Amino acid sequence: MRRLDLLIFPDFQILDAAGPIAAFEIAERFRPGAYELHVVAAEPGPVRSSSGAMMLAEPLSEAAADTLVVSGGDGTRQAIGEARLLDWLVRASGRARRTASVCSGAYLLAQAGLLDGLRATTHWSRSADFARRYPKVRLEPDRIFTREGKVWTSAGITAGIDLALALIADDLGEDVARRVAQQLVVYHRRPGGQSQFSALLEMGGQGGRFAGLIDWMRERISEPLTIERLAGQAGMSARNFARAFAAETGVTPAKAVERLRLEVARERVEASAEPIDVLARAAGFGDPERMRRAFVRAFGQPPQALRRAARA
Protein backbone atom coordinates (compact mmCIF):
# COMPACT_ATOMS: atom_id res chain seq x y z
CA MET A 1 0.00 0.00 0.00
CA ARG A 2 1.48 3.32 -1.12
CA ARG A 3 0.42 6.30 0.99
CA LEU A 4 -0.19 9.36 -1.17
CA ASP A 5 -0.54 12.77 0.52
CA LEU A 6 -2.02 15.56 -1.58
CA LEU A 7 -1.48 19.03 -0.12
CA ILE A 8 -4.12 21.72 -0.60
CA PHE A 9 -4.55 25.23 0.83
CA PRO A 10 -7.14 28.03 0.62
CA ASP A 11 -7.78 29.09 -2.99
CA PHE A 12 -6.22 25.95 -4.47
CA GLN A 13 -7.24 25.04 -8.03
CA ILE A 14 -9.70 22.22 -7.59
CA LEU A 15 -8.79 20.36 -10.79
CA ASP A 16 -5.12 20.37 -9.75
CA ALA A 17 -6.24 18.17 -6.87
CA ALA A 18 -9.26 16.36 -8.31
CA GLY A 19 -7.52 15.31 -11.55
CA PRO A 20 -4.70 13.36 -9.87
CA ILE A 21 -7.08 12.04 -7.20
CA ALA A 22 -9.36 10.59 -9.90
CA ALA A 23 -6.41 8.99 -11.69
CA PHE A 24 -5.08 7.33 -8.52
CA GLU A 25 -8.59 6.27 -7.48
CA ILE A 26 -9.10 4.47 -10.80
CA ALA A 27 -5.64 2.88 -10.57
CA GLU A 28 -6.65 1.56 -7.15
CA ARG A 29 -9.65 -0.14 -8.76
CA PHE A 30 -7.39 -1.97 -11.19
CA ARG A 31 -4.82 -2.82 -8.53
CA PRO A 32 -6.59 -2.99 -5.15
CA GLY A 33 -4.27 -2.04 -2.33
CA ALA A 34 -1.98 0.03 -4.57
CA TYR A 35 -2.76 3.45 -3.06
CA GLU A 36 -4.03 5.01 0.13
CA LEU A 37 -5.10 8.60 -0.62
CA HIS A 38 -4.97 11.44 1.93
CA VAL A 39 -5.82 15.08 1.28
CA VAL A 40 -3.97 17.23 3.82
CA ALA A 41 -3.86 20.93 4.70
CA ALA A 42 -2.35 23.22 7.32
CA GLU A 43 -5.86 23.94 8.57
CA PRO A 44 -7.83 20.67 8.41
CA GLY A 45 -11.51 20.49 7.61
CA PRO A 46 -13.29 21.99 4.62
CA VAL A 47 -10.79 23.95 2.47
CA ARG A 48 -12.21 26.44 -0.01
CA SER A 49 -10.90 26.23 -3.58
CA SER A 50 -10.60 29.23 -5.90
CA SER A 51 -13.96 28.22 -7.41
CA GLY A 52 -15.68 28.27 -4.02
CA ALA A 53 -16.12 24.48 -3.94
CA MET A 54 -14.82 22.82 -0.80
CA MET A 55 -12.60 19.80 -0.29
CA LEU A 56 -12.27 18.07 3.06
CA ALA A 57 -8.69 17.83 4.32
CA GLU A 58 -6.92 15.98 7.11
CA PRO A 59 -4.27 17.71 9.27
CA LEU A 60 -0.66 17.73 8.11
CA SER A 61 0.79 14.35 8.97
CA GLU A 62 4.22 13.33 10.18
CA ALA A 63 3.63 9.83 8.79
CA ALA A 64 5.94 9.00 5.90
CA ALA A 65 4.17 9.17 2.55
CA ASP A 66 5.34 7.23 -0.45
CA THR A 67 4.35 10.13 -2.70
CA LEU A 68 3.71 13.76 -1.81
CA VAL A 69 1.78 15.86 -4.34
CA VAL A 70 1.35 19.64 -3.99
CA SER A 71 -1.61 21.19 -5.79
CA GLY A 72 -1.49 24.62 -7.40
CA GLY A 73 -3.76 27.61 -7.71
CA ASP A 74 -3.91 31.27 -6.80
CA GLY A 75 -3.55 30.34 -3.14
CA THR A 76 0.14 29.59 -3.67
CA ARG A 77 0.77 33.35 -3.53
CA GLN A 78 -0.14 33.33 0.16
CA ALA A 79 1.01 29.81 0.95
CA ILE A 80 4.66 30.52 0.03
CA GLY A 81 4.75 32.95 2.97
CA GLU A 82 3.61 30.41 5.58
CA ALA A 83 6.72 29.22 7.40
CA ARG A 84 4.95 26.37 9.22
CA LEU A 85 3.67 24.93 5.96
CA LEU A 86 7.07 25.22 4.26
CA ASP A 87 8.83 23.58 7.22
CA TRP A 88 6.39 20.67 7.05
CA LEU A 89 6.89 20.43 3.30
CA VAL A 90 10.65 20.06 3.74
CA ARG A 91 10.18 17.32 6.35
CA ALA A 92 7.49 15.53 4.39
CA SER A 93 9.50 15.60 1.18
CA GLY A 94 12.52 14.25 3.01
CA ARG A 95 10.48 11.26 4.17
CA ALA A 96 8.71 10.63 0.87
CA ARG A 97 10.00 8.46 -1.93
CA ARG A 98 8.69 11.00 -4.44
CA THR A 99 7.63 14.63 -4.33
CA ALA A 100 5.52 16.20 -7.06
CA SER A 101 3.74 19.45 -7.82
CA VAL A 102 0.92 20.41 -10.15
CA CYS A 103 0.92 23.78 -11.88
CA SER A 104 1.91 26.63 -9.54
CA GLY A 105 2.42 24.14 -6.72
CA ALA A 106 6.02 24.34 -7.95
CA TYR A 107 6.21 27.71 -6.16
CA LEU A 108 5.85 25.94 -2.81
CA LEU A 109 8.57 23.42 -3.65
CA ALA A 110 10.86 26.19 -4.89
CA GLN A 111 10.17 28.42 -1.88
CA ALA A 112 11.10 25.50 0.38
CA GLY A 113 14.36 25.05 -1.52
CA LEU A 114 13.35 21.64 -2.82
CA LEU A 115 13.90 22.56 -6.48
CA ASP A 116 17.31 24.25 -6.19
CA GLY A 117 19.55 23.02 -8.99
CA LEU A 118 16.79 20.84 -10.47
CA ARG A 119 14.81 20.97 -13.70
CA ALA A 120 11.20 21.97 -13.14
CA THR A 121 8.17 23.35 -14.91
CA THR A 122 4.99 25.22 -14.02
CA HIS A 123 2.06 26.80 -15.84
CA TRP A 124 3.24 28.73 -18.90
CA SER A 125 1.62 31.96 -17.71
CA ARG A 126 3.64 31.93 -14.48
CA SER A 127 6.99 30.95 -16.00
CA ALA A 128 8.51 34.42 -16.30
CA ASP A 129 7.60 35.30 -12.72
CA PHE A 130 8.81 31.92 -11.46
CA ALA A 131 12.17 32.30 -13.21
CA ARG A 132 12.70 35.73 -11.63
CA ARG A 133 11.80 34.53 -8.16
CA TYR A 134 13.76 31.28 -8.22
CA PRO A 135 16.92 31.64 -10.32
CA LYS A 136 18.44 28.51 -8.74
CA VAL A 137 15.77 26.36 -10.41
CA ARG A 138 16.48 25.16 -13.95
CA LEU A 139 13.07 26.11 -15.27
CA GLU A 140 11.86 24.34 -18.43
CA PRO A 141 8.80 26.47 -19.19
CA ASP A 142 7.59 24.52 -22.20
CA ARG A 143 7.31 21.04 -20.66
CA ILE A 144 4.10 19.23 -19.78
CA PHE A 145 5.95 17.68 -16.85
CA THR A 146 9.50 17.06 -15.69
CA ARG A 147 11.16 14.39 -13.61
CA GLU A 148 14.53 14.73 -11.94
CA GLY A 149 15.41 12.11 -9.39
CA LYS A 150 12.62 11.93 -6.82
CA VAL A 151 11.08 15.29 -7.79
CA TRP A 152 8.38 15.65 -10.44
CA THR A 153 6.70 18.90 -11.54
CA SER A 154 3.94 19.53 -14.06
CA ALA A 155 2.32 22.32 -16.01
CA GLY A 156 -1.16 23.61 -15.40
CA ILE A 157 -4.38 21.89 -14.45
CA THR A 158 -4.97 19.02 -16.93
CA ALA A 159 -1.21 18.39 -17.05
CA GLY A 160 -1.66 17.17 -13.49
CA ILE A 161 -3.47 14.17 -14.98
CA ASP A 162 -0.51 13.53 -17.29
CA LEU A 163 1.74 13.68 -14.24
CA ALA A 164 -0.47 11.28 -12.31
CA LEU A 165 -0.53 8.83 -15.21
CA ALA A 166 3.26 8.94 -15.38
CA LEU A 167 3.50 8.27 -11.64
CA ILE A 168 1.05 5.38 -11.98
CA ALA A 169 3.06 3.93 -14.87
CA ASP A 170 6.19 4.23 -12.74
CA ASP A 171 4.47 2.28 -9.95
CA LEU A 172 2.19 -0.19 -11.69
CA GLY A 173 3.33 -0.33 -15.30
CA GLU A 174 2.21 1.12 -18.61
CA ASP A 175 -0.73 -1.25 -18.99
CA VAL A 176 -2.43 0.00 -15.84
CA ALA A 177 -1.68 3.63 -16.76
CA ARG A 178 -3.21 3.04 -20.19
CA ARG A 179 -6.37 1.56 -18.67
CA VAL A 180 -6.64 4.51 -16.29
CA ALA A 181 -6.31 6.91 -19.22
CA GLN A 182 -9.08 5.05 -21.06
CA GLN A 183 -11.37 5.40 -18.05
CA LEU A 184 -10.57 9.11 -17.84
CA VAL A 185 -11.05 9.46 -21.63
CA VAL A 186 -7.70 11.23 -22.01
CA TYR A 187 -4.63 10.58 -24.12
CA HIS A 188 -2.32 7.86 -22.90
CA ARG A 189 -0.07 9.63 -22.39
CA ARG A 190 1.17 13.01 -23.52
CA PRO A 191 4.92 12.70 -23.00
CA GLY A 192 6.50 15.02 -20.45
CA GLY A 193 8.48 16.74 -23.18
CA GLN A 194 5.43 17.77 -25.19
CA SER A 195 5.16 21.50 -25.62
CA GLN A 196 2.74 23.39 -23.37
CA PHE A 197 2.61 25.89 -26.19
CA SER A 198 1.51 23.24 -28.67
CA ALA A 199 -1.33 22.22 -26.40
CA LEU A 200 -2.30 25.86 -25.93
CA LEU A 201 -2.23 26.53 -29.66
CA GLU A 202 -4.38 23.49 -30.34
CA MET A 203 -6.92 24.65 -27.77
CA GLY A 204 -7.07 28.02 -29.51
CA GLY A 205 -7.32 26.56 -32.98
CA GLN A 206 -8.99 23.18 -32.59
CA GLY A 207 -12.54 23.35 -33.83
CA GLY A 208 -12.03 27.02 -34.67
CA ARG A 209 -11.53 28.87 -37.91
CA PHE A 210 -7.76 28.18 -38.03
CA ALA A 211 -7.71 24.49 -37.08
CA GLY A 212 -7.13 23.43 -40.67
CA LEU A 213 -4.48 26.08 -41.19
CA ILE A 214 -2.51 24.92 -38.13
CA ASP A 215 -2.48 21.38 -39.52
CA TRP A 216 -1.44 22.76 -42.90
CA MET A 217 1.43 24.64 -41.24
CA ARG A 218 2.67 21.49 -39.52
CA GLU A 219 2.64 19.55 -42.78
CA ARG A 220 4.79 22.24 -44.43
CA ILE A 221 6.98 23.16 -41.50
CA SER A 222 10.21 22.89 -43.54
CA GLU A 223 8.93 25.42 -46.11
CA PRO A 224 8.89 29.24 -45.90
CA LEU A 225 5.73 30.20 -43.98
CA THR A 226 5.43 33.95 -44.41
CA ILE A 227 2.43 35.83 -43.12
CA GLU A 228 1.46 36.53 -46.71
CA ARG A 229 1.45 32.82 -47.54
CA LEU A 230 -0.53 31.97 -44.41
CA ALA A 231 -3.02 34.73 -45.08
CA GLY A 232 -3.44 33.51 -48.67
CA GLN A 233 -4.08 29.99 -47.44
CA ALA A 234 -6.70 31.38 -45.03
CA GLY A 235 -8.25 33.49 -47.81
CA MET A 236 -7.67 36.76 -45.95
CA SER A 237 -5.60 39.91 -46.25
CA ALA A 238 -2.34 39.81 -44.30
CA ARG A 239 -3.49 42.51 -41.85
CA ASN A 240 -6.88 40.97 -41.13
CA PHE A 241 -5.35 37.52 -40.88
CA ALA A 242 -2.73 38.63 -38.33
CA ARG A 243 -5.40 40.21 -36.12
CA ALA A 244 -7.84 37.33 -36.38
CA PHE A 245 -5.21 34.63 -35.82
CA ALA A 246 -3.86 36.33 -32.70
CA ALA A 247 -7.38 36.78 -31.33
CA GLU A 248 -8.25 33.12 -31.96
CA THR A 249 -5.04 31.43 -30.76
CA GLY A 250 -3.49 33.99 -28.40
CA VAL A 251 -0.23 34.28 -30.38
CA THR A 252 0.95 36.02 -33.54
CA PRO A 253 1.33 33.99 -36.73
CA ALA A 254 5.12 34.42 -36.63
CA LYS A 255 5.33 33.16 -33.06
CA ALA A 256 3.07 30.22 -33.91
CA VAL A 257 5.32 29.22 -36.80
CA GLU A 258 8.44 29.47 -34.64
CA ARG A 259 6.96 27.42 -31.83
CA LEU A 260 5.67 24.73 -34.18
CA ARG A 261 9.17 24.54 -35.61
CA LEU A 262 10.62 24.32 -32.13
CA GLU A 263 8.25 21.48 -31.30
CA VAL A 264 9.32 19.49 -34.38
CA ALA A 265 13.00 20.25 -33.90
CA ARG A 266 13.08 19.45 -30.18
CA GLU A 267 11.41 16.08 -30.66
CA ARG A 268 13.96 15.10 -33.31
CA VAL A 269 16.90 16.56 -31.39
CA GLU A 270 16.07 14.46 -28.34
CA ALA A 271 14.98 11.29 -30.13
CA SER A 272 17.52 11.00 -32.95
CA ALA A 273 21.20 11.34 -33.80
CA GLU A 274 20.56 13.43 -36.90
CA PRO A 275 23.06 16.28 -37.43
CA ILE A 276 21.84 19.60 -36.09
CA ASP A 277 22.16 21.33 -39.47
CA VAL A 278 19.93 18.66 -41.05
CA LEU A 279 17.33 19.14 -38.32
CA ALA A 280 17.47 22.91 -38.70
CA ARG A 281 16.56 22.62 -42.38
CA ALA A 282 13.89 19.98 -41.76
CA ALA A 283 12.19 22.18 -39.16
CA GLY A 284 12.32 25.25 -41.38
CA PHE A 285 14.91 27.25 -39.47
CA GLY A 286 17.25 27.24 -42.44
CA ASP A 287 20.53 27.30 -40.55
CA PRO A 288 21.74 25.87 -37.21
CA GLU A 289 22.55 29.24 -35.65
CA ARG A 290 19.02 30.53 -36.14
CA MET A 291 17.68 27.35 -34.57
CA ARG A 292 20.16 27.59 -31.70
CA ARG A 293 19.01 31.12 -30.86
CA ALA A 294 15.37 30.04 -30.94
CA PHE A 295 16.12 27.09 -28.61
CA VAL A 296 17.92 29.34 -26.13
CA ARG A 297 15.02 31.81 -26.12
CA ALA A 298 12.39 29.11 -25.65
CA PHE A 299 14.13 26.47 -23.55
CA GLY A 300 17.14 28.26 -22.05
CA GLN A 301 19.53 25.75 -23.66
CA PRO A 302 20.95 25.08 -27.15
CA PRO A 303 19.93 21.93 -29.05
CA GLN A 304 23.13 20.06 -28.19
CA ALA A 305 22.53 20.51 -24.45
CA LEU A 306 18.98 19.18 -24.74
CA ARG A 307 20.24 16.18 -26.70
CA ARG A 308 22.84 15.40 -24.04
CA ALA A 309 20.23 15.72 -21.29
CA ALA A 310 17.82 13.42 -23.13
CA ARG A 311 20.49 10.79 -23.58
CA ALA A 312 21.48 11.04 -19.92
Score class of each variant (00 low, 15 high):
A271T: 15
E270G: 10
A181F: 12
S71D: 06
V264Q: 11
E219Y: 00
R209S: 11
G207A: 08
A83N: 14
R218P: 01
T226K: 09
A298K: 03
L260Q: 07
L279F: 14
I14C: 00
V69G: 00
D142P: 00
R292G: 05
I157K: 03
T146D: 09
V47S: 00
L230Q: 06
L167N: 08
L306W: 13
E62H: 11
V269Q: 10
T121H: 09
L85M: 14
A120R: 06
T146Q: 05
E270K: 11
R261A: 06
M54E: 12
E58Q: 13
M291R: 11
Q301N: 02
S49L: 03
V90F: 04
E258R: 14
E258K: 12
D142V: 12
V257S: 02
A169P: 04
H188V: 03
S222R: 14
R48Y: 00
Y107R: 04
M236E: 10
E58S: 10
S101Q: 09
G75R: 06
T252E: 09
C103W: 01
A271W: 05
S272E: 15
R138F: 07
L86C: 03
K136R: 15
G300V: 06
A65H: 05
S104N: 11
A164E: 04
R91P: 01
R95L: 15
D162G: 01
L165S: 13
F24N: 08
H188R: 02
F299P: 05
D87N: 12
D277A: 15
L184P: 06
E219C: 04
A294G: 07
A247L: 04
E43G: 04
A234K: 09
S71A: 15
I221Y: 12
L4E: 02
F245N: 04
L6M: 10
